[in-house]
């Protein structure tokens, strides 16, 4: 599949003359080059593809460069080096005018602190991107009203942002970013400023919307649990570098380094991993006891596997045998083996 956005060796360096610095170090300054130079590498050599219809979560702690990277993708921040392809076109070569057109029709963004315009009502905030495009008043208000209903704010369209709760304000932010029906949806820590309960509710809301809309999504978060709940794929960033890209189960079972392992340590592995993630594929044990399903979480089958004398057969949804799962497989999956690292 063609990636929607393709990001090749992107660098972002902050400092007095970043371009000059970047080129004097041959377009690949190492950690030594930065030491004491007054330059800060916010993003280092980031290469990542975003495929149509997927939710890609970029996860990292504050200062890891995740917000800078997502702003490079929309050119809110100009990358120092590298290449970004949007629908196969070189985004960094787009003129300011072309960028305005791209943002008006192809991109939407949701911000951590909502970034609503305080002097406009909910409806007029949502209609704002249409207004700057020059959509006629009646049309844009009709469309804005549709999106307001979509995010569940019907009846509050004439409220001002100051009259709404945090969760409601972010619903407005989401509605505004969706008003122009963008292809790509950037969400920069959209739920970080919300209370835990509201955050969970908004995550559900987000998944509901994505089931309806099937956007291509780049979602930024510092919360690994949130990443697991929402992501098709997760990219973990540390000190400006993308450390690992993969599905949640992959990060848990095969962490690329100690940093990733540290993140995944507290994850409820029994709920995240499925039988298919840990089974011995291809094995075909005796068809004695009832088989377990390949896509079941370990949590649901652990009791049975551990009580069984012999490995159990694993089948897919059509009942075709996929492999076998033994007590040892379950124990290894649930209790990470740390003996090798100590």
């Amino acid at each position: 599949m063609e990636p929607k956005i393709s990001c090749r060796g992107v660098w972002k360096i902050f400092g007095p003359h970043p371009e000059r610095f970047f080129h004097t170090h041959g377009g690949a300054p190492g950690p030594d080059a930065f030491a004491g130079s007054g330059y800060i590498p916010a993003v280092r050599d980031a290469t990542i593809d975003v495929f149509p219809g997927e939710i890609l979560v970029i996860m990292g702690l504050s200062g890891s460069g995740k917000s800078t990277l997502v702003r490079c993708l929309s050119r809110l921040i100009e990358p120092t080096g590298g290449e970004i392809l949007f629908d196969g076109r070189d985004l960094l070569k787009a003129t300011p005018k072309e960028m305005i057109e791209l943002r008006r029709h192809k991109m939407g963004m949701v911000f951590q602190h909502f970034a609503l315009l305080p002097h406009r009502t909910v409806l007029h905030n949502v209609a704002f991107p249409l207004e700057v495009q020059g959509v006629a008043r009646a049309d844009r208000l009709r469309r804005a009203m549709e999106v307001v209903e979509l995010v569940g704010l019907k009846g509050r369209e004439s409220y001002y942002p100051r009259e709404l709760s945090g969760g409601q304000q972010q619903r407005v932010g989401i509605a505004r970013s969706l008003a122009v029906e963008p292809d790509v949806w950037f969400l920069d820590e959209p739920f970080s400023a919300l209370d835990p309960l509201i955050r969970r509710e908004m995550q559900d809301e987000f998944l509901r919307l994505q089931n309806l809309l099937h956007k291509t999504i780049v979602f930024i978060t510092h919360d690994f649990d949130e990443a697991i709940r929402l992501a098709d794929r997760i990219a973990i960033m540390n000190e400006g570098v993308i450390v690992q890209i993969g599905a949640a189960a992959e990060l848990v079972t095969r962490p690329a380094n100690d940093y990733v392992a540290e993140f995944t340590r507290e994850v409820p592995r029994d709920r995240l991993l499925t039988v298919a993630d840990v089974m011995a594929a291809g094995a075909d044990p005796d068809a004695g006891a009832a088989p377990v399903e390949a896509n079941a979480p370990i949590h649901d089958v652990a009791r049975r596997v551990l009580r069984a004398e012999a490995p159990l057969r694993v089948v897919d949804e059509n009942g075709v045998t996929q492999g076998a799962i033994s007590r040892a497989d379950v124990v290894d999956a649930l209790f990470e083996d740390r003996s090798g690292r100590e």
């Binding site: 963004m109 951590q112 505004r176």
Partner: peptide, 10 residues
């Protein structure tokens, strides 16, 4: 962020 929201709106 508000300025960025304006930029993203085009």
């Amino acid at each position: 962020e508000i300025v960025e929201a304006g930029l993203m709106a085009g």
